[in-house]
Design a protein around this nucleic acid. Structure first.
Lengths: 245, 245
DNA sequence: ACCTGAACACCGTTCAAGT
DNA sequence: ACCTGAACACCGTTCAAGT
């Protein structure tokens, strides 16, 4: 595709700020004062300090100490800024050690993707909203390759392997989105923790939910991603390659 | 004004819109001219005509032929409007016939939730972003009850049953969000369908993805929700109740 | 070549006032 | 009791101009 990111190649400086004194061909004129790295750093600063929902073009520009319009020399639009930010984070996430059994390799790779995204829960929103998969950076692609290759090694056809990846991807994105959503809100607008919905239920209509009642919030707060993932991978592989016991 | 259409002078009719002539106790004063149903209808009109991303308080008010501020008598804020809209839709969705086998009942109930949401893909965004589960309306709660009860009938503990529901919920929300995201965008901004990322891959680094290459988009366009759900439910039940063959 | 302020076309929401 | 315009504090993005 057209990967417009990947600006310059390496900049030696510590800050990534070296306006090349004489560009290769006829490139003269005012050297850039603002770099891609600077903008991404400012964006992360804004997220860390003010929260994801405050990440606006104008704020990032202010944080970077430049005019808002300067950003449009480095990003196509707001969404592009977000995608660049995610790929940037993915590139900095260490690649996990992979076990040799294909089934376990899928679990480890999916968990790595999950943990990387969950650490920056805001990222799930742009990933889901966008046709993100064809804008993945190198590091993220390696994870996809790992899962698809492991499924094939287990005995899946390439088509089945893609299905395995996609199913896991849906589960992973959903888990992060739902948990980030409820968690994030609670922090922002402390929901009135009075009688939860489930405690006031009509027991004849919803007997099991009524029986669970007040325990629901505590149960729902537990992290079950890994557990569910294990069950899902086993189910997917068993369905795809039933002859393996 | 900015609304060329007539504000619709229907108030006596059978639309559920009867401003009580004399309120029971001392309730006198100007009778309401705007109803909750009117607002929700206007909101759905806006979504159907202009798309989900255009659903703003101001537009809904204009569509309903009232001042923007009038809406705040019926909804707490924008998010509340969205939640009411979803519960309204859920209430109008017919309850499916349920098979007797618990495993199949879970699949059918989850599919019903999925199809209901997928028909209004915008809804997944608010559902995920919000701590939605404790704002569910009657109809949606019946589905949750169905899944939890079926898991318990299968042999799960209540805790395990909640985990089964939550896992399925993550998968379902993720599927809708990801597919709605890529699909919706494609419709809005027809992505340049030139060489997809996977066709230009370094085959030594990503051999399986490179082998799949251009077939990825076609594979990824297939609807695999039901398939993945079956595998997931089987995996979840097998993990929770291993003694059943 | 690179950066920018002003301007446009929007938002959600608060407020004090109108009927 | 119900409805409202004006105003506030924001947005993303385009444009034409400045250095």
């Amino acid at each position: 595709m057209r990967n417009p990111h990947r600006p310059a190649e390496r900049d030696d400086g510590h800050d990534g700020e070296v306006p090349r004194p004489h560009a290769p061909h006829g490139r003269t004129g005012r050297p850039p004062r603002t770099s891609r790295a600077q903008i991404l750093a400012a964006a992360r600063q804004v997220i860390d300090r003010d929260g994801w929902e405050k990440l606006t073009i104008r704020r990032v520009a202010a944080e970077a100490g430049v005019g808002a319009m300067t950003l449009y020399h480095h990003v196509r639009d707001r969404e592009d800024l977000l995608v660049q930010l995610i790929n940037d984070i993915a590139d900095q996430t260490p690649f996990p050690d992979l076990p040799s059994a294909p089934r376990d390799r899928i679990v480890v790779a999916a968990t790595a993707i999950h943990d990387g995204l969950a650490a920056h829960a805001w990222s799930a929103e742009i990933i889901a909203t966008d046709g993100y998969l064809d804008r993945l950076g190198e590091s993220a692609l390696r994870m996809v390759e790992t899962i698809v290759a492991a499924a094939i090694e287990y005995g899946c056809t390439p088509e089945q392997a893609v299905d395995v990846f996609r199913s896991i991807w849906y589960y992973t994105v959903g888990e992060i989105l739902v948990r980030a959503g409820s968690g994030g809100r609670e922090a922002a607008t402390p929901r009135p923790t009075d009688g939860s919905f489930f405690s006031t239920l009509d027991a004849s209509r919803h007997p099991q939910l009524a029986a669970i009642g007040e325990r629901w919030p505590a149960l729902a707060a537990r992290d079950i991603y890994r557990q569910g993932l294990g069950a899902f991978v086993d189910g997917l592989l068993a369905h795809a390659v039933p002859e393996i016991p």
